[in-house]
Design a binder for these strands. Structure first.
Lengths: 215, 215
DNA sequence: GTCTATAAGTGGATAGAC
DNA sequence: GTCTATCCACTTATAGAC
């Protein structure tokens, strides 16, 4: 779980296995990677893997646990402050999305996002993590934001459920495009790509829902 | 390739293999299904499979070929008629999307859509089919539609590229939600689900871009 | 066109020496 | 904690009898 060297300046074998597994799983998918391949890449024999992880599934479990720990420790963007929401909805939508993306912008996290996108269709645990944390929870969050914006008469009174979907599904589309389709073929991180395109989408949405007097 | 019985009232073994493979691949993914499993389900020995298909890859190839043939024979929605486009853009957006979906609405095609969504990340042929036919080509089509609508002064003069994305991303999202996420857990076909939700999206977009006088 | 038999390889996982 | 050696289940695919 620890990617950095310890005090002796060495990376533990368990960490090496973790990191190599993240690399290989994200490239080929969990099933297409063998314990032998991981061991070879780490530089040990396959039987030695079992001194660190009970079995192959346990490696994937620890990767998902790492992912969830990072996501939780980053915290939701709810603490941005009500002042900005009340005074400048434009900035809130733009900044809120950026903050939501920033804390998942490391090479390891980007690879795990890819693993999630690959394994989602067959791994029920991964699927439910995505559904709850990357779909249902954010939709509720943005619905509450749009509800506030409407109550404060800062935007036109559309159905906040529809607004949340129109706003957030574009982010899911970007996720699909980047991690599943790997399109466009880019070396850039998801966050860097998504920020620009989300800005365009946010601007378009805002131009539709901002009250005339506020323009 | 032929799902219906022939004149003797019998389904050929090759067709059985095809259909069973579609069923199994769409449930478990190509790699997770063995030739043995297909043979068992068909009711023959695994060696007999090789009398009909050269190898396992050839089965998947024939499935993709079937998919492409159906897509091509259905034709693009460009022949809907310019009159409707000129006179009633609302109907065009709604009807155009429906027509685009209708010709892919069979149980077999739905299962192949699922296979495509599963194999896209690792099968370069399938990935490029999706990118070209389900992403780039439709985006170009809708961009040309919005360009016409703007030229005819039927909608506000937004950037047609942005409009195409803002309209079409929702369809890609629905694809992702239905075939990858399988959410919500539904027995309904993609088309039936997508039509209703696309209508909502189309209405929202139209409310943003329709000229005030036209409302 | 289907069968039996078998080849040749890869997979996850364990036992026990060091 | 790493190694060698090994097990056994399972994979795709082929040869040849019927």
């Amino acid at each position: 779980m620890n990617e950095t060297p310890n005090e002796e300046g060495k990376v533990s074998t368990k960490d090496k296995i973790f990191q190599v597994s993240v690399d290989l799983f994200s490239e080929k998918g969990f099933n297409a990677v063998s314990i032998r391949e991981i061991a070879r890449e780490v530089g040990i024999r396959e039987s030695s893997i079992y001194n660190h992880y009970k079995n192959k599934d346990a490696i994937l479990d620890s990767i998902i646990k790492y992912f969830m720990d990072v996501m939780k420790s980053s915290g939701p963007p709810e603490d941005i402050g009500d002042e900005m929401l009340a005074q400048n909805p434009q900035s809130f939508l733009k900044l809120g999305a950026s903050m939501y993306l920033d804390h998942i912008n490391t090479p390891t996290m980007n690879k795990i996002w890819r693993i999630i996108s690959i394994e989602m269709y067959q791994n029920e645990k991964i699927r439910s993590i995505f559904l709850e944390n990357m779909l249902e929870e954010p939709l509720k969050f943005w619905e509450s934001i749009f509800t506030q914006l409407i109550e404060n008469k800062l935007i036109k009174p559309f159905d906040p459920k529809i607004l949340a979907r129109e706003y957030f599904f574009f982010g899911v589309y970007l996720f699909f495009e980047h991690f599943v389709l790997r399109y466009p073929d880019t070396e850039k991180s998801f966050v860097d790509v998504a920020k620009d395109r989300l800005m365009e989408h946010t601007n378009f949405l805002l131009s539709s829902i901002t009250l005339e007097g506020e323009k």
